[in-house]
Simulated assay, not measured.
Amino acid sequence: MREFSSSDIDFQKGEGLVPVIVQDANTQVVLMLGYMDEAAVDKTLIEKRVTFFSRSKNRLWTKGESSGNFLELVDLQLDCDQDTLLALVVPKGPTCHKGTDTCFGTENKGSFIPYLEKVIQNRRDNPNDESYTSSLFKKGINKVAQKVGEEAVELVIEAKDDDKNLFLNEAADLMYHYLVLLAAKGYTWEEVMAILRERHK
């Protein structure tokens, strides 16, 4: 989490309030826009749950205090002008009071890969005897690399046929084992994407 305090924020421009963009930390989908005063920022940073200043209720309001659909804080970031916040969160249920994923009526469906990568990294760092992923890490890098090779061959074989279901399932198997290999080597999906972006220039 970024190191800053409420005293670093310019509340004067908004007459004591700053806008807060709320984004799902896993999917990168924007969930809502709210406002915070200094007390709301302090409470959010201390409790690691997003608290706003409600302009309609004229008081502090922790999102989910009635519904249980809290916004668990992952990171709170301050913009370059020090007058806008970005809250990266893990939502515990629908964000909007109308029951939708976001306050913009959109579904909270971003890229699944970053989420899956975090699950895989967790299985690496916190082994579980019942987890297939943990068992792969336990067998070592040679076994993980071997599985990637096996899945690649199986995908090539299915590519020669016209069974969409089998082909896509083999593609999913290859992607999963590829992410396991990246985690076993200590690398990330984002590092690979950075190389692809650089090549695209």
Rank of each mutant, 00 (worst) to 15 (best):
23 Q>S: 01
27 T>K: 08
78 L>V: 03
108 N>K: 10
101 D>S: 12
111 S>Y: 04
60 L>E: 06
152 A>K: 08
69 N>K: 03
133 T>C: 14
33 L>D: 00
160 K>V: 09
127 P>C: 12
153 V>Y: 07
164 K>T: 06
1 M>W: 01
89 V>C: 07
94 P>E: 06
174 L>W: 03
88 L>D: 00
71 L>Y: 02
127 P>I: 11
184 A>M: 11
33 L>Q: 13
81 D>A: 12
165 N>Q: 10
18 V>D: 06
128 N>T: 05
42 D>N: 15
89 V>Q: 03
155 L>T: 06
76 L>T: 03
9 I>H: 02
38 E>V: 02
37 D>I: 05
116 L>Q: 04
8 D>V: 04
115 Y>C: 05
114 P>K: 01
2 R>A: 10
196 L>E: 12
105 G>P: 09
141 I>M: 13
167 F>V: 01
159 A>R: 00
93 G>N: 06
168 L>Y: 08
63 K>G: 07
54 S>L: 08
19 P>Q: 10
53 F>Q: 00
184 A>G: 13
195 I>N: 09
80 C>L: 10
164 K>R: 07
109 K>N: 06
183 A>Q: 04
53 F>M: 02
140 G>P: 11
179 L>F: 04
58 N>C: 02
130 E>V: 14
50 V>L: 15
138 K>Y: 11
103 C>T: 10
40 A>E: 07
38 E>S: 12
192 V>S: 09
165 N>I: 08
111 S>P: 00
158 E>W: 00
84 T>V: 12
64 G>S: 06
31 L>M: 09
105 G>R: 05
164 K>W: 03
104 F>R: 08
148 V>N: 11
96 C>Y: 10
8 D>R: 03
200 H>A: 12
86 L>E: 05
31 L>Q: 08
165 N>M: 03
23 Q>G: 04
163 D>E: 04
76 L>Q: 00
171 A>V: 05
97 H>Y: 12
132 Y>A: 15
196 L>H: 11
117 E>D: 08
19 P>W: 10
151 E>L: 08
23 Q>D: 07
63 K>M: 11
139 K>T: 08
185 K>L: 15
18 V>G: 04
82 Q>W: 02
145 A>R: 14
118 K>G: 10
142 N>E: 15
92 K>Q: 15
18 V>S: 06
99 G>I: 09
162 D>A: 07
103 C>Y: 12
143 K>V: 14
117 E>V: 11
139 K>D: 13
102 T>E: 07
51 T>K: 08
158 E>G: 00
116 L>F: 14
88 L>V: 02
112 F>L: 15
105 G>T: 13
166 L>Q: 05
3 E>G: 02
25 A>M: 02
41 V>P: 04
22 V>Y: 03
29 V>M: 11
31 L>Y: 05
158 E>F: 01
9 I>S: 05
143 K>I: 13
134 S>T: 14
191 E>F: 11
101 D>E: 05
78 L>N: 03
43 K>A: 12
51 T>Q: 11
57 K>M: 04
12 Q>K: 15
140 G>R: 11
76 L>G: 03
28 Q>H: 05
133 T>V: 15
79 D>Y: 09
163 D>G: 00
115 Y>T: 15
35 Y>N: 08
200 H>M: 14
92 K>P: 00
44 T>P: 09
22 V>M: 10
72 E>I: 11
